[in-house]
Design a protein around this nucleic acid. Structure first.
Lengths: 155, 155
DNA sequence: AAGATTAAGGTCAATATTAGTCAGAGATGG
DNA sequence: CCATCTCTGACTAATATTGACCTTAATCTT
């Protein structure tokens, strides 16, 4: 909960904008300068905190007049986005990535906290580590996709 | 009840904070330094005194701005139904038996219908049939036990 | 129009900063 | 003396930060 690292602070700043608007467009160097970090740290923040699994789409353009645009998307209601997410999950999924996705579902009020906790219980390393880690990751992908499809048909 | 060991003292310190607040967030090295012990002893204290059975949830993050967070949770009153069901399950569980147990949970009002549907999505033959049927049955037992254990408390 | 220059953002690997694990040494109580 | 609890430190793992080098796009020069 505490924002201890600069990355956390930048994340919070961007999300505070995204709380009001559905998307935000930044100039990387500007943000980097404002928070006194190297520009590539902005990429790090985006890569670790604004993934599709987190519920965000990111587009960018280089060269003169370049930008980075972050857009909040709805994982379940938007069929295309959900398909993209399932596609991203693919055949294998780590515990961390699963955790991120469930958190996003909760943040978007798609599921209750209790439902999320139950999902995480099923997706946890401890529960699924019945064999090799790779098997567990494959299984985790299947279980989470099953959850997502279940949610899809309800909404 | 004298506090003989440093571990006891650290435990008491953390619990005195948790008496006021629902959760406490520490930096491991800081606490270790304050009580003049090696950092890993903090892990020892947490592992032996802040277990889920004792009513505590622990989360942590490594790297810059890392932390350890301890949260008090409420253990639910009647774990009788859960214990009984866990005993019934054992090492292996068919889809039909899983279905029956989830129905029982719903009938006993331990879970909502939606929660039951999500559970069944994870427990279904289709989701778990990643290998031989016997492996799937074993896995199903683990997943359902994980669900039941998660229902023991509320955060 | 072609090439040069400028103005963005992207990638990756090295380093820094935390916390986690585990085996064994040390202490304590029966 | 044995069992169990406590404590330590070497090694591991995860996350954050930085900077050198790369790619892309727009604009300027000729």
């Amino acid at each position: 909960m505490e924002e201890k690292s600069i990355s956390d602070i930048i994340e919070k700043y961007l999300k505070s904008i995204l709380a009001d608007d559905e998307k935000v467009e930044i100039r990387r160097a500007e943000i980097a300068n404002h928070f006194d970090v190297v520009p590539s740290q902005i990429n790090y923040v985006i890569k670790t905190r604004f993934t599709l699994q987190n519920g965000y789409l990111v587009q960018s353009k280089r060269g003169g007049g370049g930008y980075i645009r972050i857009e909040r998307v709805n994982l379940i209601d938007d069929v295309d986005v959900l398909d993209m997410l399932i596609n991203t999950i693919g055949q294998s999924l780590t515990e961390n990535d699963a955790f991120t996705i469930v958190q996003t579902l909760y943040a978007e009020k798609v599921i209750s906290q209790r439902e999320g906790d139950l999902m995480l219980a099923a997706l946890s390393k401890e529960t699924l580590s019945v064999s090799a880690r790779q098997d567990a990751d494959r299984l985790r992908a299947r279980v989470l996709v099953a959850f997502l499809n279940r949610l899809r048909y309800e909404s």
